[in-house]
């Protein structure tokens, strides 16, 4: 039992990180009904952006958030405004395929500039742990991931609940026609929503970069994690996003604990397929 506490603790903390990876994707699905297949790659792009800032200014990666997050807002805004808004319509496929193409472009662009070498955002946090018991250690970096991730999700929640822009975005998502009759420019609203989603991806990218190594091709791996979280929790639900992150991370770490670390991802996918088979709309999702 003692030995189980460590994977559970790590699972919970990692779940917070998974939730922040997925929150942007969940938001975009909820609002624009867009499954952004480039989410993982844009997130990894922000890891590289942070890497550039850190190398340039020699600051702690957490400070690079001040640069990465605003840049990612504009990246998201323009992607939505110039590319995806043009193909939004009744059909689901064209926006999906545009995002897919974008994902490949970002990946190969990163490969061209940064070479296929493994990178990471090094901090002195990485090696610090807080002992909680004889066999139980709390990795400070995981705690930072969890707390920052939680803060981002809370911020997104409050934004949608309390600000004018947030309400306008929700209105546009509930009833596009109605919102536009009330004077909301829905297409611009979608672009803002994408900008916000990409801001969260920016935070996630920096956190992931600090916690794990990354390559130009790691994007799809995190896209699958994000999709896993969103599908388990239910598309477009914020509560679901947190719950999905926890379930996925716990399934992975406990599965790896009982078998071998090589199977960590396999258990995550297994959990995902079980939820997809039994309850395709996710735990907190409405009907689809």
């Amino acid at each position: 039992m003692e030995s189980l506490l460590q994977p559970i603790l790590n699972g919970v903390l990692l779940g917070g990180l998974y939730a922040v990876i997925a929150i942007g994707m969940s938001t975009m699905f909820g609002i624009v009904k867009l499954v952004n297949l480039a989410h993982g790659d844009l997130m990894i792009m922000s890891s590289y952006l942070s890497l550039v800032i850190v190398a340039w200014l020699g600051v702690n990666p957490l400070w690079s958030l001040l640069g990465v997050v605003p840049v990612m807002f504009f990246v998201g805004f323009f992607i939505q405004d110039f590319l995806i808004n043009r193909v939004l319509g009744k059909e689901m496929e064209p926006p999906l395929l545009v995002a897919f193409g974008l994902s490949i472009i970002v990946q190969n662009f990163l490969l061209l500039i940064f070479t296929p070498d493994a990178r990471s955002l090094t901090t002195d946090l990485a090696v610090k742990t807080i002992p909680l018991g004889e066999h139980l250690n709390l990795a400070v970096l995981y705690l930072v991931d969890f707390l920052l991730g939680g803060a981002v999700i809370l911020a997104v929640y409050l934004f949608f609940k309390n600000t004018y822009m947030g309400r306008a975005i929700r209105a546009a998502s509930d009833d596009e026609m109605g919102a536009s009759l009330m004077g909301v420019n829905t297409r611009k609203i979608y672009a803002y929503a994408m900008g916000i989603a990409m801001m969260t991806a920016g935070v996630a990218g920096v956190l992931v970069g600090m916690t794990f190594t990354f390559y130009p091709h790691t994007g799809p791996q995190y896209l699958i994690i994000a999709m896993g979280v969103v599908i388990i929790g239910g598309l477009g639900s914020m509560k679901g996003c947190l719950a999905g992150g926890l379930i996925l991370a716990l399934a992975q770490l406990l599965g790896a604990h009982f078998t071998s670390p090589g199977y960590q991802l396999l258990f995550g996918y297994g959990a995902l397929l079980v939820v997809l088979g039994l309850r395709p709309q996710g735990l907190f999702g409405g009907k689809i």
């Binding site: 590319l83 043009r86 193909v87 545009v98 193409g101 190969n108 061209l112």
Partner: peptide, 17 residues
Amino acid sequence: AHISLLLLGIIAITIIL
């Protein structure tokens, strides 16, 4: 190989648009 994929991606997006 990555440049050809990059080009294909750009061509594909242009075509969808």
